[in-house]
């Protein structure tokens, strides 16, 4: 791996970390269930960028692409099932606020 490749990987990994920070902040700060799902999606985007960059600098783009395709399939299922659960919670409680989810408490 030459120097310019490593520089490029470090630069791309910075932006991947920034995407992860945005997603993590969203999950930690928000009280809306839907925004938690959006935060999760942002973290996944960061990981996808890191995987693709790693595949590019090592020359194993095909393996990286196979992994990313699997990740995308997983992402869609998580979003669909998560969205369904959030809708179900909304129809039961008339709210998407996590503070109102106290039925299982105690």
């Amino acid at each position: 791996m030459n120097n310019s490749m490593w520089t490029m990987f470090l630069n791309l990994s910075l932006f991947s970390i920034l995407l992860g920070v945005c997603g993590l902040y969203c999950i930690l700060v928000t009280r809306n269930l839907f925004r938690i799902l959006i935060g999760l999606e942002l973290i996944t985007k960061g990981i996808t960028l890191l995987l693709i960059a790693a595949g590019y600098i090592t020359g194993h783009t095909a393996t990286a692409q196979a992994l990313v395709i699997t990740l995308i399939a997983l992402e869609v299922v998580v979003i669909v099932v998560g969205g369904g659960i959030i809708l179900s919670i909304y129809w039961n409680n008339k709210s998407m606020d996590v503070r109102n989810l106290r039925h299982l408490k105690g």
């Binding site: 595949g55 783009t61 992994l67």
Partner: peptide
Amino acid sequence: IPMDFTLPAKEAAGSDVRNVLWNLRQID
């Protein structure tokens, strides 16, 4: 690190993604 966002000239070599997905990573 230097602020260099130019992609290196090397074209990443690798086997075909279909080959990897269907033959090497069937468990995926």
